[in-house]
Design a protein around this nucleic acid. Structure first.
Lengths: 187, 187
DNA sequence: GTAAACATGTAACAAGTTACATGATTGC
DNA sequence: GCAATCATGTAACTTGTTACATGTTTAC
């Protein structure tokens, strides 16, 4: 208990560093865009976590001077760190501690004004649909560039698998929102 | 900012108290079973939250002596509290801060041993399928007891809407798990 | 006798968010 | 001149988890 790289965030970072050495800022960027879709973290969590990982011997860093810009700290995963992620990744995933504000609002929808509630769910549905469209665009790109999913290597498949989850999630969510809105509107 | 009943948990509790006055223990029970499916909270969060809500004038309590058992504190929602939930419920729901360990593991699946990863996703899929079956059983009960969803009153519909979300979520999740496992097994 | 349910709390800790803090460079 | 990007941190606060703490009654 309390070991470095014990937290999910720690493993997420180790996973990124298993592919390439990165500065804290680079980690931040990756945590924003692809990883952030399923595990969000801001730089104020990332920098301390990198320090913790280093204290635990999971990563090491070297300062890289840059012309003009401040020095970069480039983090590299250690053998221990690589072993730790490799073990962690196939361990049973804990089921997310289900917390969904919109479902709670649906459950309490009888307290609100029907029309207002319907509009809220319509709008929420539009947001999820928008995200779905972005994911689907990415999927089309992958299939175009990488070919058949069956032929993907392990790395590309891993990418694609996460995307498929995003697509399924957003599609289901958007549909549910539309259904709730429709019912609330009394059709 | 920092007003009582500001947190989602506070509103969840107010929502429960809008239907009936309850003791902290009763709130705990409801937070475990129906509400816990989409907003989990343990008693160590609930008791202090009730105190905060009371300090903010959202609820009041009276001690109810019981034969043998220790006194109950029965909480009742105030006019202010009711107004606050009613307003909150149709306000835009924040999108959950997407954190899903299993999707992260899928994204990092290239780091693990194929067979082990596949088994992990199989097992996870079984868990979600199990939950799905429970929800579907509940749905059958509702339809049997309450008739057509179109005829539900606002309260019953609210219940049903949350359940529909659970069903959609678990079904999609289970399907995705099976798909990931299958692909990892190399079929 | 013993475990589960009833009943209510606090303490210590971990995780996550928002704001504070600084400073250079690049593109408009 | 001004915003965005690069680059790294800390502080204050909120949320959530796990463990500690206590005591009765009821059903097996």
């Amino acid at each position: 208990m309390g070991r470095a790289g014990d937290s999910v965030l720690g493993f997420a970072i180790l996973g990124l560093l298993a592919e390439a050495s990165l500065s804290g800022y680079d980690v931040k960027l990756r945590m924003a865009e692809p990883v952030g879709f399923f595990w969000r973290a801001s730089h104020s969590q990332i920098y301390p976590e990198l320090a913790k990982l280093e204290a635990g011997g999971m990563v090491v860093h070297k300062a890289v001077p840059q012309s003009g810009k401040p020095d970069k700290k480039v983090y590299e995963i250690t053998a221990d760190g690589l072993l730790a992620v490799r073990e962690w990744v196939s361990l049973p995933a804990r089921l997310g501690p289900t917390r969904d504000e919109a479902t709670l609002k649906a459950y309490l929808s009888w307290l609100g004004e029907r029309g207002e509630m319907a509009e809220m769910f319509r709008e929420l549905g539009r947001k999820h649909e928008g995200q779905l469209e972005k994911y689907e665009e990415t999927e089309r790109w992958m299939l175009r560039e990488w070919g058949e999913p069956e032929e993907f290597g392990a790395r590309r498949f891993a990418n694609y698998a996460a995307l498929r989850r995003g697509i399924g999630f957003e599609r289901e969510y958007a549909e549910w929102c539309r259904w709730v809105a429709e019912k609330l509107e009394g059709r």
